Amino acid sequence: MRDRDEAGRPRNARPRDEYGRPLPRGTEGVPRVPDDYAPTAEEALEEARKLLAAGRPFHAHEVLEARWKTGPDEERELWQGLAQICVGLTHIQRGNLSGAAALLTRGSARLGAYGSTRPYRLDLRALAVEADAVTTAIDEGNADAGSAIAAILTRLTPAPPRPLS
């Protein structure tokens, strides 16, 4: 029986390993994102960057998912796209390359819909292109989780402000 909150939504009670894989109940896993976590955009991005730098894209996904669930409705696609890219990286770590390619493609498409806008100074076009490059590496049999995480992390860093024209 799953733990549920007052609204009937499942809670994240089951312990997980560093790759986000479920562990048997009662096993000690790595710290999880609390169910009631409601980060600001800046907090979510900073924490996601830290987790990616530590090689923990599943946990970065949880942070970004918390933002999409608690942030403004008009930003839902942004946070879902970022979270999907992180789950794609998680699947590379776990060896599920077809799942990785599917999620990276979905995340890239969500971010691509933003065009050249730069919410939170993120170059979403470059991030989408990088996710597509990781998908190409998967298709070519050259996928490496560490390199893919590093490439996405580089693009998740805010771009310098654009000069006034």
Rank of each mutant, 00 (worst) to 15 (best):
I92L: 12
L97P: 04
D123I: 02
D17H: 10
T40G: 11
T40K: 09
L127F: 03
E62D: 15
L122P: 01
R76S: 09
T157C: 00
V129R: 14
R110A: 13
V30I: 07
E43N: 08
E28R: 15
R2W: 09
R49H: 08
V129I: 13
R67K: 15
R32W: 09
K69R: 15
R56A: 06
H59R: 14
E42Q: 15
E28M: 10
L78I: 08
V129S: 12
A7F: 13
T154C: 01
Y19Q: 15
N96M: 06
L164K: 03
D36V: 06
W79H: 11
A143V: 04
R16K: 15
L89D: 06
A151Y: 07
H59V: 01
L78C: 00
A60D: 05
E42Y: 03
R125P: 00
N96S: 11
P163D: 00
P39N: 03
G146P: 01
P24R: 04
P161T: 03
T135L: 05
G26V: 06
Q84Y: 03
G107N: 05
P158I: 08
T27C: 03
S165N: 10
A41D: 14
G115T: 09
I149V: 14
D144H: 08
A133F: 04
R67G: 05
R9I: 02
V63K: 03
G88R: 12
Q84F: 11
R155C: 03
T136F: 06
L82F: 05
G107K: 05
T117Y: 05
E75Y: 01
I152L: 13
T154Q: 15
K50T: 12
T157K: 11
D139F: 08
P158E: 02
L104A: 07
